[in-house]
């Protein structure tokens, strides 16, 4: 008993620096922001500070801009399943014993340790509608197949169009909006960035834990490569996939700030403004700290619900390992 008490004392001392930091710089501000969300706190002092209860949350429900930005955020998450599937595919390829494996792994991981801003500037140049390499290649292809005069190349970051035909000013569909635009450009860039990143590493690590004897046994029983993957490997990857899906959803809901800041300024016509940028804009451009805190808590609630749903439905189908 005495020894246990002594261990506890040591543990408290070791945990204390982190705990103090967490309380001061994470938990404290989070609770403070909950309080702020119930006020009209504005850094411009002409508005007297008042407790306004749930007014900010009620205002949010009929704030058209908030809903448009929420839809933008969801639209920019469309790339997540493709990025995850791509990561898995690449991890499976890299899990084979082939020549130059280390070089391939390094090349594919490059986007993850390259400066994000540098990558964004690079993609911005790639997407230039007139001089960018992407449209130059597309124009050559269109010309080669005789479509050059009939099909316009996308305007990418300058266009409000999107594959779902989402309206720019209201929630809804607008047939004039079908096409490729800024949101799709950001999705493509997101997939490219994520496909060879940490998700790939996680899958690689998980693949090394799949018992080889089980795969070999399945093949001896006549399973094809695909069947062996589907019935043996994939169930073993379920916990990793679950973790990646949860983290990607959280990242997606919180994301979009850097791209909006560096590449699009949230435009054109607000189509790349996500909830994260919306919060920044209200807090630090319009100084409406109370309202921005309320949006942050709504975002937290959405993330919590999405994670809970993932937790409830996403853990099924794993192997009993």
């Amino acid at each position: 008993m005495k020894r246990k008490r002594s261990d506890l004392g040591h543990a408290v001392w070791f945990l204390a620096p982190n705990l103090v930091g967490f309380v001061l710089f994470t938990a404290g501000p989070v609770i403070f922001s909950l309080g702020a969300s119930l006020t009209n706190w504005n850094l411009q002092r002409s508005v007297p500070l008042q407790f306004t209860g749930l007014k900010n949350f009620v205002d949010l429900t009929h704030d058209n801009e908030f809903w448009l930005d929420f839809v933008n955020t969801l639209y920019l998450m469309v790339g997540i399943p493709f990025a995850i599937a791509g990561s898995l595919w690449i991890a499976v390829l890299l899990n084979r014993k082939i020549k130059g494996l280390a070089a391939y792994r390094t090349l594919l991981y490059l986007p993850s340790f390259t400066s994000g801003v540098a990558l964004m500037l690079l993609w911005k140049a790639l997407y230039n509608p007139d001089f960018g390499p992407i449209n130059t290649v597309l124009r050559s292809i269109f010309d080669a197949v005789g479509l050059g005069r009939h099909v316009d190349t996308p305007q990418w970051l300058l266009s409000t169009r999107n594959l779902a035909g989402l309206n720019v000013e209201h929630i809804g569909i607008d047939k004039h909006q079908f096409g490729l635009g800024a949101r799709d450009a950001l999705n493509l860039m997101g997939i490219w960035t994520a496909i060879g990143g940490s998700n790939m590493l996680l899958y690689l690590a998980a693949l090394t834990n799949v018992p080889e004897e089980l795969v070999e046994a399945a093949k001896l029983d006549g399973a094809t490569n695909w069947s062996a993957f589907k019935f043996v490997t994939w169930p073993h990857l379920a916990p990793t996939t679950f973790f990646i899906v949860v983290m990607s959803c959280i990242g997606g809901l919180q994301g979009g700030f850097e791209t909006a800041r560096v590449m699009t300024a949230g435009g054109p016509a607000g189509t790349t403004t996500t909830l994260a940028y919306h919060i920044y804009s209200h807090a630090f451009e319009r100084f409406q700290i109370g309202y921005a805190s309320a949006i942050s808590w709504v975002l937290f609630a959405v993330i919590f619900i999405v994670t809970a749903l993932n937790w409830k439905f996403g853990q099924r189908g794993g192997a009993d390992v």
């Binding site: 409000t160 435009g267 054109p268 016509a269 804009s281 451009e285």
Partner: peptide, 21 residues
Amino acid sequence: VDSTTSTRLFQNQLDLIQNNL
């Protein structure tokens, strides 16, 4: 109205002109 908001609302409409909407 704060200038950030009014400029953004104006700029959004310029973007819609540029997109021929």
